[in-house]
């Protein structure tokens, strides 16, 4: 660099300072605050002399945090990202409350929010126990589906024979209504946790396989050629290039899978169980206990939401580099 024209040296130092401030901003957890990657790319493509790009100066000035993340700014950005859905939820809640309050619908059909809350408070120990059961079934089912799904995808991608033999069958098996298998599972595995877990695995497996296969196949062929010129083994190529590259697609599959796993566990409980939220739901339905029904339903949804968020967190940890994780709000709807 030293014997280069001085213009390049100034370019480097200017870019250096901006890069540091990006890194700081990257640490503010919410991707909403980060600068626009597409705009940056465009600047890179058009000029190559990125520091002069006008987009950057403006954005740097508007950024909330450039000196590093503070708790205050974290809370602020979290609020700015979540107030809209919360507002919609509050409106829906108010409508529910209003309908129940004016007794527009009989209370045994739609109970008041107060009655549902009362049920949750009164029966919290019982509800917690059954929520725990359903959560466990879901998590075990999801993790098994993820492991088996990724392993199957690796097999399909690396072995042409396996792909020809198995992939059509996997696609075909997806057509079988899994819920209809539930009674058979009860016959085979009894009334314990096993049939619920198996059903959760069966339902969650498909999106994992499909997304993992797509992710593993989407590797840039030039990266494989590069790896060949490095004399890398298949295992190293898989570990350092192919698998990390497949993570963005795999993560989308896992998000779908985790919500489906809840469905699998609950349906499993419908068919034959003496524990779990699905079992309580059937009981409540039989007794026309609307507050318990609603309380149960809310807890089931909570399981799904919490697990989904956990996968989101996992995604944020695993692929902070991916475009989907450094979103550009300005272009979000374009």
């Amino acid at each position: 660099m030293t014997d280069d024209p001085s213009s390049d040296t100034t370019t480097s130092s200017a870019t250096r300072s901006t890069t540091t401030s990006w890194e700081n901003r990257a640490m503010t957890t919410t991707h909403g605050v980060r600068p626009a990657p597409r705009a940056r790319r465009a600047a890179a493509a058009s000029g190559g002399t990125r520091p002069e790009s006008p987009a950057r100066g403006g954005r740097g000035a508007t950024t909330v945090t450039s000196a590093g993340p503070s708790i205050g700014s974290r809370v602020l950005s979290l609020l700015s990202a979540s107030w809209r859905p919360v507002a919609v939820l509050l409106v829906l809640f108010a409508a529910w409350w209003f309908v129940a309050w004016r007794e527009m619908v009989p209370a045994y059909l739609i109970p008041s929010p107060g009655a549902v809350w009362q049920t949750m408070v009164d029966d919290w120990a019982m509800l917690l126990e059954h929520t725990w059961v359903t959560t466990m079934e879901t998590i075990i089912g999801f993790v098994l589906a993820a492991v088996i799904g990724v392993a199957t995808a690796v097999l399909l991608v690396y072995s042409k024979t396996a792909e020809k033999a198995l992939y059509p069958l996997i696609l075909f098996a997806q057509v079988i209504p899994k819920i209809a298998i539930a009674p058979i599972l009860v016959v085979w595995f009894g009334f314990g946790l096993t049939p619920k877990i198996v059903l959760a695995v069966l339902i969650a497996f498909f999106p994992v396989v499909v997304s993992a296969v797509a992710g593993l196949r989407s590797v840039d062929p030039e990266l494989l050629e590069l790896s060949a010129t490095m004399g890398a083994s298949r295992w190293k190529t898989f570990r350092k290039i192919r698998f990390p590259g497949s993570l963005p697609q795999l993560m989308s599959g896992l998000k779908v899978a985790v919500t489906l796993a809840v469905v699998g566990a609950v349906v499993g409980e419908f068919v034959g169980a003496d524990r779990g939220l699905g079992y309580i739901l059937l009981l409540a339905s039989g007794n026309l206990d609307a507050p318990l029904l609603f309380a149960d339903l809310i807890l089931m949804s909570m399981i799904g939401v919490v697990l989904f968020l956990l996968v989101e967190v996992l995604e944020r940890v695993l692929i902070p580099w991916h475009a989907s994780r450094r979103g550009n709000l300005a272009l979000a709807s374009s």
């Binding site: 030039e222 692929i319 580099w321």
Partner: peptide
């Protein structure tokens, strides 16, 4: 493998920083 190859597109690993992208060569070998 006794060569260096540079592609038309840089063919960098998106998830690795500059140094780690360069060191990929060392890890693979």
């Amino acid at each position: 493998r006794e060569i260096g190859f540079a592609f038309q597109r840089s063919a960098l690993l998106e998830w690795r920083g500059v140094r780690k992208n360069i060191l990929l060569q060392a890890e693979m070998r």
